[in-house]
Design a protein around this nucleic acid. Sequence first.
DNA 1: CATACTAGTTTGCAACACAAACTTTAGATC
DNA 2: GATCTAAAGTTTGTGTTGCAAACTAGTATG
Lengths: 116, 116
Amino acid sequence: MTEVFERLSGLDRLVHEPARLAVLTALSVCRKADFMYLLRLTGLSRGNLSTHLSKLEAGGLVRVEKRFVGRKPNTLLALTRKGERAIESHWRRLDELRADSRQWSPAADEKKGESE
Amino acid sequence: MTEVFERLSGLDRLVHEPARLAVLTALSVCRKADFMYLLRLTGLSRGNLSTHLSKLEAGGLVRVEKRFVGRKPNTLLALTRKGERAIESHWRRLDELRADSRQWSPAADEKKGESE
DNA sequence: CATACTAGTTTGCAACACAAACTTTAGATC
DNA sequence: GATCTAAAGTTTGTGTTGCAAACTAGTATG
């Protein structure tokens, strides 16, 4: 099944990018977290985290809720239903692809790439 | 251990990028494969595969061996020792991070991100 | 009033992923 | 032997990305 590698090379970049993978994974455990918390958690810069979150919001994976705590602004993040499914299935896909690639045999594919 | 997410967001992009993850994973099973074989395997375009391979070579993860088969040029790819270690440890790291994140508890970290 | 801090957002830039166009050599056709 | 097609890659052009530095807006402090 050579299709394994096609699926590997076609992984969803919105989810796969390391910083976003970290944010989504954290939120999948956390349920909700605020901006400053994610900042410390991931070690990203403010600007960087901000743009990643915008992308996740644009993709419909994360819900952004702005509010005030005392007199200070506070941005609360949570996965949408779609986001939950996305991160969960991304990890599952990685597991599967890894497992499949292990038991894949090049010789079983019609055209081999030389063993010299 | 919040460090899990720092490590997640700091994954090596050279290895993590989907197309290259596919190529490296295939080569780790294959030992050697030629350009056209990887092309079919991954479903990438020629140009795209070529530049990804150049990057992997520049990073010292892949060895490129050009030769002729009959009268036709043929490019043979294989992991370097460094490449073997890189792909193997990348998958292992993903496994670990995934597992760690599962048993991570937000509440255990000093500052919580709101559960409202 | 000014100065500093907090909580983000916007901007500018270098690096990237991708396909289209190009290169080079070989074989087929006239 | 000139012309065409194909194979096997590489280079180029372009839109996108990831990133930190610079900016913004509101609050607190001297």
